[in-house]
């Protein structure tokens, strides 16, 4: 927790006079909305093998289950330690998500047949595009930030124009412009390099602003101390300013990496066989779109989680001087 105050506010939901009527109301609402015949309700009743009951009984059972579920959280989970609260809530939400997917009547057999190709071609291509684009975007961002902070009007002008243009045009349009526009100049680019170029330029523009703000967040006194000690401008930037700015730069940059991983799916419009493209085309032949979409989504999510974990580690590293 970033800031822990020393006040215990009375837990409103923990009091029976509040939560008992609350639960009753919830039950009534769920029953009124016919939760039993929604996809989630059907999914639940099927999971618990209750489908033989009448729809009205179904409705009651599902509303009751949902109410019990909320009551369990109020009565039990809210009394646990913070860490366990987080774990249990994650588990619950994951189960709810699974129930949601289960309600689609997915053909797991179809997923099993296709997932190999989805991973070996689609995921590999997605990761390849993302990693290369992230590297180029980071380099562009560093150069862009330096230019924006420089006293060179030409550099500043180029950097301003660049960030303005590439933040201001939809990424999809940039991909088309590079893939279809550059050949007009006589340079024919393949789909993959065109996609990488568009992603790098677009995310480089966003990250330029992140880097600039990060560098500017370091107090002037750090520059003064470093320069007064005789460090040259490049050493000051690399050894003194940037390592400190990383603390500010890392969280939004992690955001950008995760966003880019998923935005790499836009490259599918020019026919690159990455994850999203395959998910769309593989499902088409047997009208199993949802299966492929869910599978691809889960793969994206897994790799986003991986990036989140890496980000947390890097944040800890750069924050170590501030841990007490």
């Amino acid at each position: 927790m970033h800031f822990a105050d020393n006040v215990d506010y009375p837990s409103l939901l923990g009091r029976p006079i509040v939560f008992l009527p609350g639960l009753a109301l919830l039950f009534e609402l769920l029953r009124g909305w016919n939760i039993g015949i929604t996809a989630i309700g059907r999914g639940l009743t099927e999971m618990f093998r209750l489908s033989a009951l009448s729809p009205a009984a179904d409705n009651l059972v599902v509303a009751g289950l949902a109410t019990l579920f909320v009551a369990f959280n109020l009565a039990v989970v809210m009394r646990l330690k913070l860490r366990w609260q987080v774990y249990i809530v994650w588990l619950e939400l994951a189960v709810l998500l699974l129930v949601f997917f289960y309600s689609f009547n997915l053909s797991f057999d179809f997923i099993r047949r296709k997932i190999g190709f989805l991973l070996s071609q689609g995921l590999v291509m997605t990761l390849y595009i993302s990693v290369v684009s992230i590297s180029i975007a980071s380099a562009l961002a560093l150069i862009g930030a330096m230019a924006k902070l420089s006293s060179n009007g030409v550099a500043l002008g180029i950097a301003n124009f660049y960030t303005s243009l590439f933040r201001g045009i939809p990424l999809l349009m940039q991909i088309y412009m590079i893939y279809l526009g550059l050949p007009q100049l006589g340079y024919v680019v393949n789909a993959v390099p065109a996609g990488i170029a568009a992603l790098s330029l677009c995310y480089g523009a966003y990250m330029t602003e992140i880097f600039r703000a990060g560098i500017e967040s370091i107090p002037k006194g750090q520059w003064e101390a470093s320069r007064a000690l005789g460090l040259k401008p490049a050493s000051t930037m690399l050894r003194i300013i940037l390592p400190q700015a990383m603390r500010v730069i890392i969280p939004p940059t992690g955001n950008q990496f995760i966003a880019m991983l998923k935005d790499s799916s836009l490259v599918s419009v020019v026919g690159v066989w990455e994850l999203m493209y395959l998910a769309r085309t593989q499902g088409q032949t047997e009208f199993r779109h949802i299966e492929m979409m869910v599978t691809a989504s889960m793969i994206y999510w897994l790799f986003s989680i991986l990036l989140e974990l890496i980000q947390a580690r890097i944040e800890r590293y750069y924050g170590r001087a501030h841990a007490r």
């Binding site: 107090p219 003064e224 000690l229 390592p243």
Partner: peptide
């Protein structure tokens, strides 16, 4: 300027230690 700064040490009101080191 570099030659001068190599001959002159400075101590600041706000210390200006490098917090990451």
């Amino acid at each position: 300027v570099e030659a001068v700064r190599q001959r002159v040490g400075m101590v600041f009101q706000q210390f200006n230690l490098f917090p990451h080191l």
